[in-house]
Amino acid sequence: MNVFRLAGDISHLLAIIILLLKIWTSRSCAGISGKSQVMFAITYTARYLDLFTNFISLYNSTMKIIFLGAAYATLYLIYVRFKATYDHNHDTFRVEFLLIPTVILSVLINHDFSPLEILWTFSIYLESVAILPQLFMVSKTGEAESITSHYLFALGSYRALYIINWVYRYYAEGFYDLIAIVAGVVQTVLYCDFFYLYITKGSRANATEMSIEA
């Protein structure tokens, strides 16, 4: 473990707590893409299957349980508890365009053609594009509540911090994993437009709502 990865995990944890709190306190999932949350739940389910077979550390197991639990709790809030506030009309991204290519790619490019490894690879590829429905929805509605933008900032920062962690691990331990690194770079690049707007939000007129040009 290094400080970059710890910061990344904390940023990731912060993001999903912000999202859960936003939905629970406002009793609404307006502006939230249920499709992205489904993608994240699939990602963590495919990646954390080794939760019971491969104990790494208390921290690792605890975080996996938290991420899985929060992902499904968020799905419950969106599709069951506050279903009436789910914005079907704006959450229209065709997720099959994400799922099919990532399944194919995980079968073609992986470290080891074993079920667990292919599922892990699939989860890495899927996570890199899972935020697209949400970013698409924000661009479609033309704005994001400030709390949603904080969620996106924390979520985008998590993988950016992981990239620094991978650079550190390469020089410090000689470890690297090109699949994770390439997917992580793609994932972080997708947020760049949003990062720019989020950071310059203070200097723009409508500082209250964050508007992303389509």
Binding site: I56, N60, H111, F175, D177, L178
Partner: peptide, 10 residues
């Protein structure tokens, strides 16, 4: 060349 990272990352 796709050297594996041990799966200790989340």
């Amino acid at each position: 060349f796709l050297k594996k990272l041990n799966k200790d990352e989340l």
